[in-house]
Design a protein around this nucleic acid. Structure first.
Length: 526
DNA sequence: GCCGGTAGCCAC
DNA sequence: AAACGTGGCTACCGGC
């Protein structure tokens, strides 16, 4: 719905004004609003880029600063913005926010969300502490890894160019698609073209091409992608993010970044540091502690499935967790009607796919594709699954119904997610959109409750840590807390974290946590 | 050169 | 790629 003629900054301002108007806040008397109105009506808004516009509106004093930014020499800080520009803007911003308090508080009270707000308010300083603490990385390690990966990339490039018979930009999906499907004539039956008109070169497609590829170019491209991703996104990028004052990397956590109530991490995102692939794991060696300290990583075991058990009250699920059984093996046992100790690895893997898939609202179509079953077989297994876990079936049905009827669903803590799509004038005629909304609806209470629980744990934990220890929280990765702990505190703090996390909130099943320690983020041992 | 969309891919 | 949810980052690329 964005107007392409209005720069993003003006959009944000316009959105702010809309919110204020919705709550009956009169924005007319302050210069903030005047300024935004001017920006929106200024003919320059339609024709200039953001920085030109800022120059135009804010005058010559900003030009020098903006030039510095443009050359990568500076970031805007309040100290650099002329006081007569910053003061009215900041004052109006604060004034508007203050005036929003009564109507927002009223709304929260009506919806029973004051306690949730209190939790978020208490979490804020915890997040601030984590951001201030930052994470240490081994710069030499990253530099060496970068050099090693450069060599690998160069070799892969040569291999790919030789097979292709020409040089091209491997990172361009357009060019790569032309090489694979036009020049090398790899089979394209059943492959879908993507929006930009060429054939997709995504991993799944490349994997499917392996069988018909006698040249080895597919393997080389897959490896080139993996190495390139790692190098570009992490190995080369992270050392540049080190704060010269602290020598550490300080991420930003957004408390409102994820619609389910999860945190989001950015600049850099430290919630998606690789761990699954062999090469990705090596990267984690580069995350280190101060001398005399250790990492302590504590994560919730199967927290979303435990929450599912609690919410659905499904007898089988409840019993499995109360008896501390392996949930995926137990699921397989039920699914195949065999004793749990007879479950094979493949049967367990299959059950795991279903268990995780259902949290996200997976259907038989996807299950078939993931597991190689026919659609009919996948449907049979889904039916068997829901037959064996009737509580889950009821939950999915009831949650979809609630989303339609009430227009929202909520977590155990009352955190809501709204689904305006069910209210739209389209009247549910948009099948794809409503089905997506249904999947989002069944996922929200589970993912959101997990987010709520770990937030509670973080608040309690940080209070204890600040009162009694030098150990500090560094990162939250959705179901994991990473701490940096002086060695002499390690045993005590480990017990504290385990205790706080596992008792953060009482469910009808135990909250199990697993603690590991180590000198880097890879070699963590229980 | 900036901006935003797209493709692809990293995590939980 | 996809009828599996929540995010963020990089590279490319076309528009201005």
């Amino acid at each position: 719905m964005t107007d392409p003629n209005i720069p993003k900054v003006a959009h944000n301002a316009k959105f702010d004004c809309m919110i204020l108007e919705r709550y009956g806040i009169d924005v007319s008397p302050v210069r903030f609003d005047t300024m935004i109105a001017e920006w929106l009506t200024d003919p320059a808004t339609k024709h200039k880029g953001l920085k030109d516009l800022a120059r135009h509106r804010l005058g010559a004093e900003m030009t020098e600063i903006l030039d510095l930014i443009g050359r990568g020499k500076a970031q805007v800080t309040f100290a650099q913005v002329p006081i007569d520009v910053a003061a009215p803007y900041g004052a109006a911003d604060a004034d508007m926010t203050l005036r929003l308090v009564p109507p927002l508080q009223h709304e929260l009270r009506e919806k029973g969300l004051i306690e949730l707000l209190d939790m978020e308010m208490k979490l804020l300083p915890v997040i601030a502490d984590m951001e201030r603490a930052g994470v240490r990385i081994d710069v030499d390690f990253f530099r060496h890894m970068s050099q090693d990966l450069s060599v690998v990339m160069l070799k892969l490039e040569q291999t790919i160019y030789e097979i292709a018979g020409e040089t091209f930009n491997i990172n361009s999906t357009q060019q790569l698609s032309d090489i694979l499907f036009k020049k090398l004539q790899l089979p394209r039956e059943g492959l879908k073209k993507i929006a930009s008109g060429h054939y997709s070169t995504a991993f799944n497609v490349l994997e499917g091409l392996k069988a018909s590829d006698t040249t080895g170019i597919i393997d080389a491209i897959i490896e080139y992608r993996e190495v390139g991703k790692l190098k570009g996104t992490y190995v080369d990028a992270l050392p540049q993010m080190i704060n010269p004052d602290t020598g550490r990397i300080h991420t930003s956590f957004s408390q409102t970044g994820a619609i389910t109530g999860r945190l989001a991490s950015s600049n850099p995102n430290l919630q998606n540091i690789p761990i699954r692939s062999e090469l990705g794991q090596q990267l984690r060696r580069g995350f280190i502690t101060e001398p005399g300290c250790s990492f302590l990583s504590v994560d919730y075991s199967q927290v979303e499935l435990r929450i599912l058990a609690h919410i659905t009250q499904d007898e089988t699920l409840l019993r499995t967790f109360r008896e501390d059984k392996d949930i995926h093996a137990a699921t397989a046992a039920v699914l195949y009607d065999i004793p749990i100790e007879k479950v094979t690895k493949n049967q367990r893997r299959f059950a795991k796919t279903i268990n995780f898939g259902l949290i996200y609202g997976m259907g038989a179509f996807r299950l078939a594709r993931e597991t190689g079953l026919t659609l009919g077989e996948a449907e049979d297994y889904m039916a068997k699954y829901f037959g064996q876990f009737p509580g889950i079936d009821r939950y999915l049905e009831e949650t979809r119904r609630k989303a339609r009827a009430d227009g929202y669903v909520e977590t155990l803590f009352g955190r809501r997610r709204y689904f305006p799509v069910f209210k739209s004038t389209m009247g549910g005629s948009n099948r794809q959109a409503t089905q997506r909304a249904e999947r989002e609806a069944v996922n929200h209470p589970i993912q959101g409750t997990a987010a709520d629980i770990i937030k509670l744990a973080m608040i309690r934990l940080n209070d204890e840590l600040k009162a009694h220890y030098r150990a500090r929280l560094l990162l939250q990765v959705h179901d994991e807390l990473l701490l940096e702990v002086p060695l002499e505190e390690l045993d005590e703090v480990r017990e504290l974290v385990i205790d706080v996390m596992s008792h953060a909130f009482e469910l009808d099943v135990p909250l199990k946590v697993e603690a590991e320690t180590g000198a880097n983020w890879l070699e963590l041992k229980g």
